[in-house]
Structures are given as structure tokens and as C-alpha cells.
């Protein structure tokens, strides 16, 4: 494995891999895209029954799970799409969406 090297935003043309090639895997993790979000999911640990539907459906792998339990939301990558809140069972509704500006 090559070691991951983050390219500085002001890197010169001589310093970057040719053709925009990304020479390592898993770099999306370093790319914080959560600031695109206008709405924010709030997870309630009390209400949650850990059915993990939200984890299955989240398109950005932003539901954090440890030992089979939802531990929170990765706000560095969550886009606020609201899918998790929608798929959370009606009787539970452990995720509510708020406006980012209400925070």
C-alpha cells in the first residue's frame, strides 16, 4: 500500500499526480462534505430500537454504529437528505430533521 498523502490546495503542477489520478484508496473519508447540508438529522438514543434501517439506507454511510448500536451521525459527511428519518419505523421516529440554521 502506498501511504496516503494529502495534496495541499496550493500544490504546484509539478507536485501533483498526472491526469488527476488519485493514487490511494479511501480518500473520500478525508474530504469533508458535510458542509453542503441545509437540514440536519438529530438521533435520539432513547427512542432508537437499533433496527439499523437508517444504517442500511443512508447513501453516505453516515450512520455511526458500534456493536450493533447506533452511536450517532457522522456530520462530516452527512448531506442532510433525510432518508434516515423517513425509513425509521413510524412507531419509533428516532430521527428528526431540523434546519441547519436552527442549530
Amino acid at each position: 500500500m502506498t501511504t496516503k498523502k494529502i495534496i495541499a490546495p496550493d500544490a504546484k503542477w509539478q507536485e501533483i499526480p498526472m491526469a488527476g489520478i488519485i493514487p490511494t484508496a479511501g480518500t473520500a473519508k478525508e474530504f469533508k462534505t458535510g458542509d453542503w447540508r441545509t437540514r440536519k438529522p438529530i438521533h435520539s438514543e432513547e427512542k432508537c430500537i437499533n433496527c439499523l434501517r437508517c444504517w442500511v439506507y443512508c447513501p453516505d454511510s453516515s450512520i455511526l454504529v458500534k456493536d450493533g448500536k447506533v452511536t450517532g451521525i457522522d456530520y462530516d459527511h452527512c448531506k442532510g437528505c433525510g432518508i434516515c428519518a423517513k425509513v425509521c419505523p413510524d412507531k419509533v421516529k428516532a430521527i428528526t430533521m431540523i434546519n441547519q440554521s436552527e442549530e
Binding site: M18, A19, I21
Partner: peptide
């Protein structure tokens, strides 16, 4: 598979120009 790479990714205002310069230089 030992050195996975991504080719042809989205390349916007911040790096596209540098890649064109590389091409011109080549």
C-alpha cells in the same frame, strides 16, 4: 489491487488547470 487508484475523477477550478499544464509540458 495492491495499489488501488482512481483515474479520471472530477477535476474542478482548483486543479484542472494544473493538469492541463502537465499535459502541455508533456
Amino acid at each position: 489491487k495492491d495499489e488501488p487508484v482512481t483515474m479520471g475523477p472530477l477535476d474542478l477550478q482548483d486543479f484542472y488547470f494544473e493538469h492541463k499544464k502537465q499535459q502541455a509540458e508533456a
